[in-house]
């Protein structure tokens, strides 16, 4: 039974929000992911992920300043909530436990069959 649902891309988005800390808003998150993971992120995918995460209560948002560059639209900054943190830890822990469960021999034998 899954306690916390967090998809791969969602996890990335959350981690990026964490990295950016107080500067996490749409365009910044997108750029951060693009540079760090060197992959293209579409506006659509990211915003759907953000909406979903907010619906789940893993992140919360607050309105920021409106700038000339954004034609007067406010920025919306995201922050990880306590629940979000739990979800991330949970995901990481399950991952780790899975990692640990993989017998060492798997890594060593890889070479033989290659």
């Amino acid at each position: 039974m899954k306690k916390y649902q967090l998809g791969e891309f969602e996890e990335i988005v959350m981690l990026t929000i964490g990295i950016l800390y107080k500067e996490a808003y749409g365009v910044a998150i997108k750029k951060e992911i693009e540079t760090r993971l060197s992959r293209d992120v579409s506006m659509g995918a990211m915003h759907t992920a953000l909406v979903r995460l907010e619906d789940k209560g893993y992140i919360k948002s607050f309105d920021g300043e409106a700038t000339e560059e954004r034609a007067g639209r406010p920025r919306k900054y995201f922050q990880i909530t306590a629940l979000g943190k739990k979800a991330m830890t949970y995901t990481k822990e399950t991952r780790d436990s899975l990692w640990k469960a993989v017998p060492k021999v798997v890594w060593e034998l890889n070479g033989i069959f290659q």
Binding site: Y25, V27, M43, H47, R70, R75
Partner: peptide
């Protein structure tokens, strides 16, 4: 609800 800030992101980009 989403319009303003996504729009903002779009325009910024």
């Amino acid at each position: 609800k989403l319009r303003d800030f996504i729009e903002g992101d779009l325009i910024e980009e």
